[in-house]
Amino acid sequence: MTVTVEPSIFKIVKYDSKEIAGVAQEMLKLLGMESTNLLIDVDETVAMSRVTTTLSDPVHILVMSSAFENLKKPMTFSIDNAKFSLGRGLLRIRDRQSGNFADAPTDEDLSVVESAVWETYCVGRLSRLGLKVHKQRWQYNFRNRHGFKDAVDKQFEKIWEADGLTWSQLSEISQHALA
């Protein structure tokens, strides 16, 4: 596994590319993705938390700077936030590598609803791997995209607890929630 971080020296945020690479390697191990090579591209001009992944070799991860940020001390690095943001992106990659998500749109083309569904699936799994997760945040995101109803919450729980889903299964649950 090789991990490259761009830029190697940050001009705006106080991040260290080696530290980011270290966190990425740790996450690759945790997710059983040791054979994956990564190119992590951090856009430090944007204070947003978006992470966009592209399946290639190396796998390309485009990260907006707030995805790695300590939000209590802006422009400084947070290991926890970096782990969590990379974890979500890497799980999407792992899902794609499995072949069960061949019919999923690229990250850039995911609709806001599809994105919320997949995030729920990823964060649920990360919480079981021991990462600190605030479930209510993801529930709120899911509700924003599917509606504020008990039936929607039930579908959220289904995804949150699940492992080994395929893209079509995920989409089906989402359709149920929207119905």
Binding site: I12, E44, T45, V46, A47, M48, S65
Partner: peptide, 13 residues
């Protein structure tokens, strides 16, 4: 903090 939340790159799309 000079960073923006404005449309750039992927987000613009």
């Amino acid at each position: 903090d000079p960073r923006g939340t404005s449309n750039t790159g992927v987000i613009r799309k």
